[in-house]
């Protein structure tokens, strides 16, 4: 007997990448990549260093716009809209698709101001009370509020590495994005801080779609529902994480996950 499909089971793509090529000058960094980002799932991008994971991730909210030598062809759609359409406002786009970077990079401002900055520039709060609420909720969602509740006025740069990274996550959450892009968010953190953030991501999945670049296959296996394996700019294989790690189709994927290349 077939189970009726629940709504959450319906495969829904929040972003689609079609035939994207990226060049840095003459360096062909990403080659003809097509990828689906599922709603409310964690998509992991894995692969050896320099294979174009970060580059592709940055294409998803046009962070590469600021790099002059970077040329992008192909199509990236968010919610059915081509994000590289010339009528698209990147500011609005990045408010919908937030980003967390490899190295925690809080602003040299107070913890409060770090989180409040996004809502302020996007005018998400009408008054101080609303802003306070947004800051508190974002910090709670990032699992940081309990630790910093009594020192919101302290500098964000004074926190530990793991706390700083969660502050950056809170900062990204505060602008209410739909997709959160994370570029090796745990690579600068110790295992305990990493575990805290992995747990956090599992909770965040309910409200957001997450794309995470990671060099750790274990991490990809632990947290993601879908995995895409890159090699030398090519997307070699993508699919359900369980499949990729147990039954890789491509020889290169097999070599990588068994530790022979990378």
């Amino acid at each position: 007997m077939k189970k009726p499909k629940k709504k959450s089971d319906v495969v829904e793509n929040v972003m689609t990448v079609r035939n994207v090529d990226v060049f840095y000058g003459s360096n062909h960094a990403v080659k003809d990549v097509s990828l689906d980002i599922r709603k409310n799932q964690i998509t992991a991008l894995i692969g050896p260093s320099g294979c174009g994971k970060s580059t592709l991730l940055r294409c998803l909210n046009r962070m590469n716009d600021n790099i002059e030598i970077c040329k992008i062809t192909g199509e990236v759609k968010y919610d059915g809209q081509d994000i590289y359409d010339k009528n698209v406002d990147v500011v609005a786009l990045r408010a919908r698709i937030g980003m967390v970077f490899q190295k925690p990079n809080p602003f040299p401002k107070s913890i409060y101001d770090n989180v409040a900055y996004g809502p302020r520039i996007h005018r998400l709060a009408e008054n101080k009370q609303q802003l306070d609420d947004i800051v508190e909720n974002s910090l709670k969602k990032a699992g940081l509020f309990a630790e910093v509740a009594d020192r919101l006025a302290d500098p964000g740069t004074g926190l530990s590495g793991g706390q700083q990274q969660r502050l950056c996550i809170a900062r990204a959450i505060a602008v209410e994005p739909e997709v959160i892009l994370m570029d090796e968010p745990c690579s600068a953190l110790d295992p305990i801080a990493t575990a805290v953030i992995e747990e956090l991501m599992e909770d965040m999945r309910l409200n957001y779609s997450i794309v995470i670049v990671t060099h750790s296959m274990q991490q990809a296996a632990r947290i993601s529902q879908r995995t895409a394996f890159f090699h030398m700019g090519e997307l070699v294989e993508q699919g359900a994480t369980s499949k990729i790690f147990t039954l890789p189709k491509d020889e290169r994927t097999k070599s990588y996950i068994t530790g022979r290349i990378g």
Partner: peptide, 17 residues
């Protein structure tokens, strides 16, 4: 540090902001 610029741009701040 460029990371500060990236942080702001990633939040949707315009160039001028």
């Amino acid at each position: 540090p460029p990371s500060i610029r990236e942080a702001a741009i990633g939040l949707g701040a315009s160039k001028t902001q």
